[in-house]
């Protein structure tokens, strides 16, 4: 679905040459995968995201979307249609003053007939559970609701894939939960390919696959369980691990025989109970 080959990119602001932001990066994301991308600020995550819909084109290597090279200028709008983007600040990506008119923006640009736009808008709003608010003014909505409208605006293009660049960074816990719920629903119902860039480890833990970036490279690329069990490495990259993983890891390094590839509260509680039982039974 999304493929980067030997991708190289650097920003050149004239006076001082900045080092490579993306350096010889290879990545292949399959249809229907939910991939979380982690990394501290400035590691190149956002730059990578902008390559997936041709907002940026590689200075070296290639990026393919459904087999189309993003350097192919004739196909740029097809690429943009296939890859929906959601950005960090909900206020800065909503174009219209009424929710449904904003969701209609992309289909309008694609020249889709009115009747079908109506159908797509209603469908998209129902998917993100904002249909009830279709006549509302966006600036009166909560952060989480605005972001769901932005997601609806992207899926109204009927894309193959959605790339989200820190969509929850400006939200409160409730808003974040709303957005995560929407993402998981999209994946489950529409088999949508999702790329989620985030700073929140609990969000990444819900993905199928986690990519950790540092300095323009991919450092780790694995299932969340395997990624978060590398507690020391993640901390050295300026990242966190979920508290329960850290706790299990800490217990383990204090000599308690307990696995620390745990991601959820339930898993962690299971492991602890297992350990207690094993102590009690004397093994």
């Amino acid at each position: 679905m999304l493929k980067a080959e030997k991708l190289f990119y650097s920003y050149d602001n004239g006076e001082k040459k900045i080092e490579a932001v993306l350096d010889n990066l290879n990545l292949n994301i399959k249809k229907g995968e939910f991939v979380a991308v982690l990394g501290h600020n400035g590691c190149g995550k956002s730059t990578l995201a902008k390559h997936f819909n041709g907002l940026l084109t590689p200075l070296g290597g290639n990026v393919y979307v459904s087999g189309i090279n993003t350097k192919d200028e004739d196909k740029i709008w097809e690429i943009r249609r296939q890859v929906g983007m959601v950005f960090q600040n909900p206020d800065n990506q909503i174009v219209a003053n009424v929710v449904e008119e904003d969701v209609a923006f992309a289909p309008e640009n694609l020249g889709i007939p009115s009747a079908e736009i109506r159908q797509r808008v209603d469908e998209a709003l129902k998917t993100v559970d904002m249909y009830h608010y279709r006549k509302h003014a966006p600036h009166l909505l909560s952060g989480g609701q605005k972001q769901r409208v932005a997601i609806a605006g992207a899926i109204a293009m009927r894309p193959e894939c959605i790339v989200m660049d820190e969509p929850t960074a400006m939200l409160d816990p409730m808003g974040r939960a709303e957005v995560m719920e929407t993402i998981l629903k999209l994946k489950a119902r529409e088999n949508m390919t999702v790329v989620l860039i985030t700073h929140y480890m609990d969000e990444a833990a819900q993905a199928d696959r986690v990519i950790v970036m540092d300095d323009g490279h991919i450092v780790i690329d694995d299932v969340p369980r395997k990624v978060f069990s590398q507690v020391e490495l993640l901390k050295s990259l300026g990242l966190d691990v979920p508290q329960v993983t850290e706790l299990a890891y800490e217990l383990n390094s204090s000599g308690i025989e307990i696995d620390y590839d745990v991601l959820t509260v339930t898993e962690c509680a299971d492991k602890i109970m297992d350990y207690v039982r094993s102590v009690k039974s004397g093994n």
Binding site: M85, N92, A104, A106, P107, E108, N109, G111
Partner: peptide, 22 residues
Amino acid sequence: DLAIAMESRCYTGGDGRTRLRE
């Protein structure tokens, strides 16, 4: 930000644009 968001949603100007409510 808005310019990038609009471009991501395939905005190319007025030509060929349709409307939710014609």
